[in-house]
């Protein structure tokens, strides 16, 4: 026993890089691999193709589209030809409105969907009540809800929020429920013989056990929220990136349309990265387990 505990002591004394050193180590490791160069090459190829089609060779209908040069000229200009650039307040108004809507919609969907899904996974009778209903409503495309939401809710803001919330809610609920289903029966049994009440089991087995699925669900759900938000803004909206796209198209200015599309892509990417980061923070145990498996 003493020999083995000495050996483990020794192992623990090897200093692991911390803080800034760890960051440097990770950056070095990242650029030591092939991945970043392939990513850069991939983006370069895509941009080049885009340029060739629109501006280089001006292939057929692509002449209607602004090419990468035209778009970036306007995007980064203090006096944009077609009205939208990083120096105009209007651009940020649209972004802010869309982001605020996502924050509200995603927040409501998460606050309702996660507990509901967990309870559905935890209790047979709650599931029997609700699951069939959700399964019928879920396949209805979000655009099909547009007329109903405009009829039912006042103004521009409420229908848009409702549509974004709805889509996101279904994904979150379903994933939280599947997360509970995925928990090994033995954890429930272990909790039972350790003397847990039903509430203890919920808090200590159901919630943490379902977290990996919940966060997978949240990453999908924030994407779905953006998707349905933009669709909703296109149909019923007064501001926001979706509205900007449609508005630009209607007024025959194509550069803001493309700028809004690319902006949506970046914001969507960052928002799901944010959700992923939050998930990793809450699930240190899960991250460490995956690391041990070399993933």
């Amino acid at each position: 026993m003493s020999a083995s505990s000495q050996a483990t002591n020794g192992q623990n004394k090897i200093a692991k890089p911390q803080g800034f050193d760890l960051l440097i180590y990770r950056v070095k490791k990242y650029f030591g691999r092939l991945d970043p160069y392939l990513t850069i090459l991939g983006i370069g190829l895509w941009l080049f193709t885009y340029w060739v089609l629109c501006e280089g060779l001006q292939v057929w209908r692509f002449t209607k589209l602004p090419g990468p040069v035209a778009v970036s000229k306007d995007w980064f200009s203090t006096t944009p030809f077609q009205g939208i650039s990083i120096f105009t307040a209007e651009y940020y108004d649209h972004i802010a409105v869309s982001c605020r809507r996502i924050l509200i919609a995603f927040g409501i969907a998460t606050a309702l969907g996660v507990p509901l899904g967990l309870f559905m996974g935890w209790s047979r009778s709650i599931r029997d009540y609700i699951f069939p209903l959700i399964e019928v409503l879920r396949p209805i495309p979000i655009l099909a809800w547009v007329p109903l939401s405009i009829l039912l809710l006042p103004g521009f803001e409420w229908p848009v929020l409702f549509l974004a919330t709805l889509a996101s809610f279904f994904v979150t609920t379903l994933n939280a429920m599947l997360g509970v289903d995925s928990i090994d029966e033995e954890y429930f049994r272990a909790a039972g013989c350790l003397g847990s009440s039903r509430w203890d089991v919920f808090m200590n087995v159901v919630v943490p056990g379902a977290l990996p699925f919940i966060f997978t669900g949240l990453q999908i759900s924030i994407g779905v929220a953006w998707f349905s938000l933009v669709a909703a803004e296109m149909v019923s909206g007064d501001l926001g990136l979706g509205y900007l796209i449609v508005d630009a198209y209607m007024n025959n200015v194509t550069v803001p349309m493309v700028i809004a599309m690319i902006t949506l892509g970046f914001i969507g990417y960052f928002s799901s990265a944010l959700v992923r980061m939050l998930g990793n923070k809450l699930m240190a145990w899960h991250v460490k387990e995956l690391n041990q498996q070399g993933r």
Binding site: C193, N204, P208, G209, L211
Partner: peptide
């Protein structure tokens, strides 16, 4: 107290 075949320590604790 049961000790399980595949181990049932809570992985999140």
């Amino acid at each position: 107290m049961v000790v399980f075949q595949h181990g049932a320590l809570f992985p999140w604790k």
